[in-house]
Write a protein that binds this DNA or RNA. Structure first.
Lengths: 184, 184
DNA sequence: GCCCATCTATTCAAATTTGACTAGATGATT
DNA sequence: AATCATCTAGTCAAATTTGAATAGATGGGC
């Protein structure tokens, strides 16, 4: 799964009530497009799906100062909040870069201790990936791409960066940086 | 676009003649699944599309020692070879990690000097991304995710790794490592 | 010589994503 | 006050991806 569902739910959760275009503006201004690329179509699809599943509900916003074309506004439901937490926790454990990035964007919406737990889990998994990648044989003139030193090296380096960035984030969180939902 | 098309064409190009399962075996054994995840369905879809576009052609392989269920074998056409080169060049210039990884897997199928050129282009683009990301303002208690120091920091570090890995690859290529198609 | 696990090879519906397009509103300019 | 650019908001068909299922062949054990 991509990070779109989490990003869309997150945007709605932060704002209370929004519409597709509002979500799109968020993701663009958050520069989510640097890390995941979110096309309008994906946002509207996600909104419809989330609505069909009862995670969000079409809502008449009391706002009479609407500009421009008609819009459909949505509010997050109780179920939607639970789903958001599930997706957020999964994202923070995830090996995928885009997912963690989305997870970090919203991490303050979980208790600090929980975020630390999840990142520690991720760290374990990253460590074992690095260990595995280091066992792979390489050949200077490789018979097939899987043994190419540059390819294997690229991936080792990538996961090492994932490890070190996760470690430094853990350090910051343990030393009390940022303000989490359980601390406000 | 994902890297599937390039990977599938590349697998056929290396083997001369193959079928979907053969491609799948390649990608699995090359551990392409570490970097991109290639489901059978995507491979067969790519094969049909490539065939419809005349990039590959169904072929009766003379091989009578077939095992297992019926298979459809394909050979790459002249057009397919050109498309492969186009995709490969695009992949090596690409900012996306998966793409470069696929590009590196096949880079020896281009002349050394060309690969160096392409990687230099990529390096320029990576440098400017890093420069841009460094201008982004951050806030310790950010108003929105785009200003989160951890999020911005994560992406800066990621692109810095992309820069340094590209630089070290260029160094290896300039010093004569590996054997390229124009050197055999 | 039969059974079952595994390997070989592919298919297909459903879900998602892409890319391009539509269309209303506002405001600045002529 | 008509025009045009731009911002707001969303739609839709086509392309792609996912996930799960189907089905034939081979080999090993009993």
């Amino acid at each position: 799964m991509s990070a779109v569902r989490l990003l869309v739910l997150g945007s709605i959760a932060r704002r209370g009530i929004t519409h597709g275009y509002g979500v799109h503006q968020d993701l663009t201004s958050w520069r989510a497009d640097t890390w995941t690329s979110v096309k309008p179509g994906s946002i509207y699809h996600a909104l419809e799906k989330l609505a069909a599943q009862g995670m969000i509900e079409p809502t008449d916003s009391g706002d009479s100062t609407k500009l421009g074309p008609a819009r459909t506004e949505y509010a997050i439901t109780g179920e939607g909040k639970q789903e958001f937490i599930r997706l957020l926790e999964a994202a923070l454990k995830n090996n995928d870069f885009q997912m963690v990035a989305a997870g970090i964007a919203f991490m303050e919406l979980l208790p600090r201790a929980r975020v630390i737990e999840l990142l520690e889990e991720r760290l374990d998994s990253l460590h074992s990936t690095v260990t595995f990648l280091r066992t792979l044989p390489t050949q200077p003139i490789p018979a097939d791409p899987s043994k190419h030193p540059e390819l294997v090296g690229l991936w080792v380096g990538y996961f090492e960066y994932a490890v070190s960035s996760t470690e430094s984030l853990l350090l910051a969180l343990r030393s009390g940086s940022y303000l989490f939902i359980d601390e406000k």
